[in-house]
Amino acid sequence: MSDTPQDSQDSVLPVIDEQAIGAAVETALAAIAAATSTTELKQVRIDHTGDASVLTTANRSLKSLPKDQRAAAGKLVGQAKGRVQQALGARQGELAAAEEEAALATETVDVTVPTDRRPRGARHPLRMLEDRISDFFVGIGWEIAEGPEIESEWFNFDALNADADHPSRSLQDTLYIAPEGSGALLRTQTSPVQIRAMLERGAPLYIACPGTVYRADEMDATHSPMFNQVEGLAIDKGLTMANLVGTLDAFAAHLFGGKPITRLRPNHFPFTEPSAEMDFRCFRCEARLGLDHDADPLCRVCGGTGWIEMGGCGMVHPNVLRAAGVDPEEYQGFAFGLGIERILMLRNGVKDMHDMVEGDVRFPQHYGTEI
């Protein structure tokens, strides 16, 4: 029967067209010659020798030809592919050599040009800011005090009126030094320096305590297990919260310029009573113009609130004064604590804590601290 499937298949057997193969080769050779880069040539290779190309399709169809036609057709297709592959190889060599020569010309280094064999280093912005903070307190007549970074629980917690079950004593917050029960730890604040200064020198006393402190925090964009603080302590007769506010106002003006607008928010700390968080008006958005101006809701510095948290502060708790040998009936004092990294992030626009600690030498130079 003439309508059987076998008869239908035989009637559509493919035929290798010599003219079509020749045209495909000429098109491929023209595209190869027109390629101006190895990237363009790679696309030409895909277009003219890839799975969808005329030559590859013809090569696949050879097995469907009658046996007496396969040899001639195979020779035709093979010679065509050989011409194209040869042209591709030659053009690849030409383009690769030209690109290498261009790269060498572009990247040529004049070895006769004088250079600084010992590039200048740069002080870290944190150290520069710490010096600027110290200069302020020395300028108003205070002293800079230092103490050990490995402390005892008594100096770090007990003398600061922290209860035995206070959350800050837990392993989730504090890094203790072996062996267990030794009472030694990495200080979580620079407040122990204040206790040591009162025990050694008594009152009156005006000191600022910058230094490194440690917390059991995970490293992220705004936290680090090791960071820097500056704490201030003033002990004298007749001191009040007004003296505290005046000191912090002057400190904010020194760091950020202008006439800062500040506020106190009630809070609780075991070592001060009364205690407060001090905020100052954002210095980046419209909020800086005064309380009658709204903050920019998109401001990254204040988060759209118009206020920036400066740190904790308050009047020194009488129990702390007694622990340090100072009579709270005769002397009063105020204290405050600020994070130096936070000040740097606000003042210089640093967005990620990682930039401060990863040691990239370009970081300090970027913030203009090269010396």
Rank of each mutant, 00 (worst) to 15 (best):
Q6F: 04
D7Y: 03
D10Y: 00
S11W: 05
G22K: 04
L29F: 14
A30E: 14
T38E: 12
T39Y: 15
S53G: 08
V54R: 12
L55Y: 01
T56M: 07
T56Q: 12
T57W: 08
N59Y: 13
A71G: 06
A72T: 05
Q79L: 15
K81H: 02
A98Q: 13
A102H: 07
T106R: 02
H124E: 05
E130W: 14
R132E: 15
I133K: 11
G147W: 09
G147Y: 06
N156A: 13
F157I: 08
A162M: 13
H166Y: 07
D173Y: 05
A178N: 06
E180R: 04
Q194Y: 02
L199P: 10
I207V: 11
A208S: 15
P210T: 05
G211N: 02
T212Q: 10
V213M: 13
D217G: 00
E218F: 02
N228M: 09
V230W: 13
T240C: 07
A250T: 09
F251K: 10
R265F: 06
H268D: 01
E273D: 10
A276H: 01
C282W: 02
C285V: 02
D294H: 11
I308M: 04
M310R: 03
G311A: 04
G311F: 03
A324N: 07
E330R: 09
F336P: 10
G337I: 02
L346Y: 14
R347Q: 15
K351S: 14
D352G: 04
D355K: 06
G359A: 08
V361Q: 04
F363E: 02
T369C: 10
E370Y: 03
I371W: 13
